[in-house]
């Protein structure tokens, strides 16, 4: 079965990104396909290279980067949600003439159309809300 996950909660203010990560691992362990993971609303902050969680907390972003590196699962962050929350890759940093980029290269900036297309193409869309 082909899965798409949507993650809507902020990484360190909600359980959404961690629950979605565990679900993603379970999907793959059971031999299903994980087409992509789309981060929307505050979920886009999962892609930040600048978050420094305290030692006793899990680095949620690092978990997703590890999953991407191991399995090649596509991780997308919504461009509109990202820009207004100060999440920029190098292209957007240059376009808007800001002084830093903070999106980990494991994540791609994508339009909402990618979420809609993925929702149509997959067999199951599972949303992890804030």
């Amino acid at each position: 079965m082909k899965f798409t996950l949507a993650v809507h909660g902020a990484p360190h203010n909600s359980q959404a990104a961690l629950s979605a990560y565990r679900f993603a691992r379970a999907v793959l362990r059971r031999g299903h396909q994980l087409q992509r993971v789309f981060f929307y609303h505050d979920g886009v902050q999962t892609a930040s290279t600048l978050a420094v969680p305290p030692q006793e907390e899990t680095d949620v972003g690092a978990l997703w980067v590890g999953l991407h590196e191991e399995t090649g699962t596509e991780l997308d962050i919504c461009i509109a949600a990202s820009l207004k929350r100060g999440m920029l890759d190098e292209t957007e940093r240059d376009r808007y003439e800001r002084n830093a980029a903070n999106v980990h290269p494991a994540f791609q900036i994508a339009g909402l159309g990618v979420l809609i297309e993925a929702a149509i193409e997959c067999d199951r869309l599972v949303t992890f809300r804030a």
Binding site: Y40, H41, A81, L112, G113, L115, I116, E117, I120, A130
Partner: peptide, 18 residues
Amino acid sequence: QRVVETLEAALVAAVFDQ
């Protein structure tokens, strides 16, 4: 911002002829 952003996604879905 959730309501505004969810409505934005709904508009995109409609533009995609769903």
